[in-house]
Design a protein around this nucleic acid. Structure first.
Lengths: 189, 189
DNA sequence: TATTTTACCTAGCGCTTGCTTGGTTTTGAG
DNA sequence: CTCAAAACCAAGCAAGCGCTAGGTAAAATA
């Protein structure tokens, strides 16, 4: 019995899992809960995934890949560094609180529920994303838009942006664009 | 059988619990693990705490109270707003990565493991801490040291500071004071 | 239409979990 | 020295957990 990595059904399960993992947490979401939410019996889940952890890996992998794609799209064809930096911040917030919100939140909060092997696999994806930021930040420093150590600035900005999952409610009060503007104004010269 | 809220033994258990909750997580720390770490039998834990959750509440309560005390001490007797804002950032980082590190990390990461009742109880303490920040931030805005909405700025700064638990290793590379300086330079005018 | 593959169900095993109960030891005040 | 309160232990229960085994139904392939 081989388990296919791509299938419509599997993807549905991953989306449902992301929602449950966000609402409860990975540990407090049981395979029976996920089964009930998707109209399946709990044992049948293991036809799609080797184990519970593989579901979490799939959710996070999904989230990370979409993050990278999102900021790439948002910043492409921009030449001005001011615009690029804003687009980066805006793009990050837009995916973070967009349709894939659940997966992104899980990517951020459930990292430590992963085994070492799973971490190793996903860390490559995360590094890729962070490198994308790093490059633009360095360019911004060169243009005196930012000052300080690139790595520290990156951790600082990404930290505060990611923290918004703790307090920001989409479609209530501020728009994401306003938010991005305020973030941008605070760090850029 | 009444359970006293203050006792030396209880405090030892809370400290040990903080460490375990940080290393594993609340859910993945079993009462048996905590018992083994403190040289006790698992059942005996329930002489000190009504249930497992009460241990978590004690850890977080401890962390929050010490946070507030730390920044109060750090900023007292300062009149210049520049100095005060720096002291606030420095004080926050110093407790966060100081001797009570475990409890603070648990306070940040395990919030959602709490029941609604426990949350309600602890939210008062957290609000108190945030209000302390808010006051100083407003003063800083009045003095043109910061610009923007107070609440947003607070969330932004505290978010990035708290995020440092994800990457900062005490006693390795940068000192906390250097870190605080960089943070300060990035937000203050 | 026959055959294989994919998707699912039924039933339950083995293990761990938080917590309880009823009893014993230790401690400290009078 | 007495004795009650506090701290602990031994043993185990009931519930929930991830996951498996063996089979059936549906869909795809030939």
């Amino acid at each position: 019995m081989t388990i296919p990595k791509q299938s419509i059904r599997r993807n549905e399960l991953v989306v449902a899992a992301a929602k449950l993992f966000k609402e409860n947490s990975f540990d407090r979401t049981t395979v029976r809960m996920l089964a009930a939410a998707t109209g399946i019996k709990s044992g049948s889940l293991f036809h799609h995934f080797k184990g519970k952890e593989e579901i979490l890996v799939a959710v996070i992998e999904d989230g990370l890949k979409k993050s990278l794609k999102a900021v790439q799209t948002e910043t492409q064809s921009l030449t001005d560094i001011n615009q690029t930096l804003f687009a980066l911040i805006y793009g990050h917030l837009k995916t973070l609180h967009g349709p894939e919100r659940d997966a992104h939140i899980v990517s951020i909060t459930e990292w430590r529920s992963l085994s070492d092997e799973s971490k190793q696999h996903l860390i490559t994806l995360r590094d890729e994303y962070e490198q994308f930021w790093q490059k633009i930040i360095i360019e911004a420093i060169d243009n005196r838009l930012l000052t300080g150590e690139p790595t520290l600035i990156r951790l600082f900005i990404l930290g505060s942006l990611n923290w918004s999952i703790q307090w920001f409610q989409p479609s209530q009060g501020k728009s994401i664009k306003e938010l991005a503007q305020q973030f941008y104004n605070m760090v850029a010269k």
